[in-house]
Design a protein around this nucleic acid. Structure first.
Length: 599
DNA sequence: TTAGGGTTAG
């Protein structure tokens, strides 16, 4: 058992100092508080008060009941000082408070919230040793910890074990936690199956259950399924949606550009007296910004301010993103600077947005400056930060600087992700360093990255663009040998590579193979092939391809169209093709003055 | 008279 001295040390200096104060002061200060410990605990709003109270409690003779200590632990946990709460729990054990299943449950929860689920299981072991039989609260906390750490398989195993071995009766929280984990990995099918299972087991799903799955469906763009579930929840189960349910749905609609439906839903929630909150408004702001509709986004912000909602750092970061996307960097910077004036603090994501804007607009010096600024301000660049600047360096041809930063991120403890590798490989290829890219690719060995179709697409594209169509072909066959499935992009970049080298026969063969491989060509495939045919003055299939495009409802892009116009103007293609071309031109391109005599 | 999930925005 820990003695008093160690106990004080354990607490840290503040307590030591506190303890050194003349004891009468301490006693007079606290004596009057003796009478109502519960109400004191109830009033706790900050860590210091809690620690002080704990100290005082632990000096009492006799010790207050374990219930009082548990209440204090709860208070500390509620203000999210999990680590301190865990310390207090340890001290409770040390000074001989007879900890019970409540204390254990709090301790386990704290471990789990600190991403130390392993320690949580160790505490579970303590429960068994102390003959405290764990209950559903304890298992739920552990399950949540596993989900938090993305250990979904372990979570599933624990969940099944609970049921099979009848360790506890799963309740709505157990199911919701498991569903949350499944949704985190886009496993909507199993999440829905679990929803049905809980109904079978007489465990009523609630608003959290439904909202979790609805949100996941929206994130996966399964908006119709989301609404089906929404209808089931409201009409069949009589569960009223809340602001969270609505925000998910509105967000889903906005992502599809279904603005009318989104505004109908907004109206519907208002009719039901549910007010949109900061997150709802920000979702709208973000969706508008992503479509370049910054004016609309600003209007939303004005409305939210009028309605007494205060835009926060997320709202403004979205707006910055919007201006960056439009290349309006001065405006983006203006918003960034105004953030501080509003008493908000830019975070890593805010910096990343602005950095990305500078990089995309090829102002890499400004980006470097911001990168420096954020570290000075004590913000730790994350993987996204590094990815953004590395890509920026490659875009302006500064390959050495890119490579240096790539090495530096390792040193800073930021582990490159698949995105990083994609950026580096793409950057190397675009800077005509295909060999370098390939050797990095081979260095990856048999990692997940090495069997990522996106990585293959980048390399095949890079090799093809640099005129190394043979390397591209080897990669293409290599991925098939590996059992990987080429996607439409893979075919497109390979066809593009063949076209570039004038190997139209190969291009056509691959094009024909797409359909039979269950990967039908998309509009890009047609554009790539058509451009290849035109550039190589190979006109035999052109009309047929245009006809097919029309049948499939595809349209031409500006550059392909431009190429057609040139060929017609040069008398290489017959003007009779104009009629067919006219059908394939999207509305916005019809404004092209060169097309005015078309109709 | 003590423990839980809480799902929504960059």
């Amino acid at each position: 058992m820990m003695n008093r001295t160690t106990f004080i040390k354990f607490r840290g200096t503040n307590f030591f100092l506190l303890h050194c104060l003349p004891s009468f002061q301490f006693v007079t200060h606290t004596a009057s508080l003796h009478s109502n410990l519960s109400s004191l605990i109830h009033k706790i709003t900050n860590l210091n008060d809690a620690l002080e109270l704990f100290d005082e409690m632990s000096h009492r003779q006799p010790l207050p009941s374990v219930v009082k200590f548990n209440q204090l632990l709860t208070a500390v946990t509620k203000i999210k000082h999990f680590s301190s709460s865990l310390d207090l729990f340890k001290q409770m054990c040390a000074i001989g408070v007879p900890v019970d299943k409540y204390s254990m449950s709090i301790a386990i929860k704290c471990c789990c919230q600190l991403y130390r689920t392993k320690d949580g299981f160790a505490v579970l072991g303590c429960c068994f040793r102390r003959a405290i039989s764990p209950n559903v609260y304890i298992y739920n906390a552990l399950l949540d910890g596993l989900v938090l750490e993305d250990k979904i398989l372990e979570a599933e195993m624990l969940f099944k074990k609970l049921i099979k071995q009848k360790l506890c009766e799963p309740d709505v929280v157990t199911y919701n936690t498991m569903i949350k984990g499944l949704c985190k990995f886009s496993n909507n099918v199993t999440a829905l199956a679990l929803l049905r299972l809980m109904e079978q087991n007489n465990c009523k799903p609630n608003i959290v259950t439904y909202s979790t799955i609805i949100d996941s469906l929206c994130k996966d763009k399964l908006i119709d399924d989301a609404f089906k579930l929404f209808k089931e929840m409201v009409s069949d189960k009589g569960i009223l949606p809340n602001v969270i349910t609505y925000t998910s749905l509105i967000c889903g609609l906005c992502k599809f550009g279904r603005w009318d439906d989104a505004s109908k839903l907004l109206k519907q929630m208002e009719d039901e007296n549910i007010s949109p909150d900061v997150k709802t408004f920000t979702a709208l702001v973000d969706a508008f910004c992503k479509e370049g509709k910054v004016e609309e986004a600003e209007a939303v912000i004005n409305i939210m301010i009028e309605r007494g909602e205060v835009p926060n750092i997320v709202t403004y970061s979205s707006l910055i993103d919007g201006y960056c996307l439009r290349g309006e960097m001065i405006k983006a910077r203006e918003i960034f600077d105004s953030i501080t004036l509003r008493g908000l603090v830019p975070d890593v994501v805010t910096y990343n947005s602005l950095l990305n804007g500078y990089c995309k607009n090829l102002n890499i010096e400004k980006a470097e400056q911001m990168f420096h600024e954020m570290t000075v301000k004590g913000l730790k660049p994350n993987v996204v930060t590094y990815n953004t600047i590395i890509q920026g360096f490659f875009q302006v041809g500064r390959c050495v600087a890119a490579r240096k930063l790539f090495d530096e991120m390792h040193a800073q403890g930021q582990i490159p992700n698949e995105c990083t590798y994609g950026i580096v490989l793409d950057g190397l290829c675009n800077n005509r360093q295909v060999e370098e890219a390939l050797s990095l690719f081979h260095l990856m060995g048999d990692s997940k990255l090495n069997s990522d179709i996106v990585v293959y697409n980048i390399l095949i594209n890079g090799a093809g663009k640099c005129g190394n169509v043979d390397i591209a072909r080897v990669l293409f066959h290599g991925l098939i040998d590996k059992g990987l499935q080429p996607d439409v992009r893979t075919y497109n970049v390979m066809i593009s590579g063949f076209c570039q080298e004038g190997q139209l026969g190969e291009a056509k063969l691959l094009f024909l193979k797409m359909e039979e491989s269950g990967c039908p060509p998309d509009d890009v495939t047609y554009r790539v092939l058509l451009q290849g045919y035109l550039k190589n003055r190979h006109y035999d299939d052109v009309e047929m391809l245009l006809q097919e495009m029309d049948d499939r409802g595809y349209s031409l892009d500006a550059s392909t169209l431009s190429l057609f116009i040139d060929h017609i103007a040069a008398g290489l293609l017959d003007r009779s093709m104009l009629k067919l071309l006219g059908k394939l031109v999207p509305k916005e391109l019809l404004n092209d003055p060169r097309l005015c005599d078309w109709e």
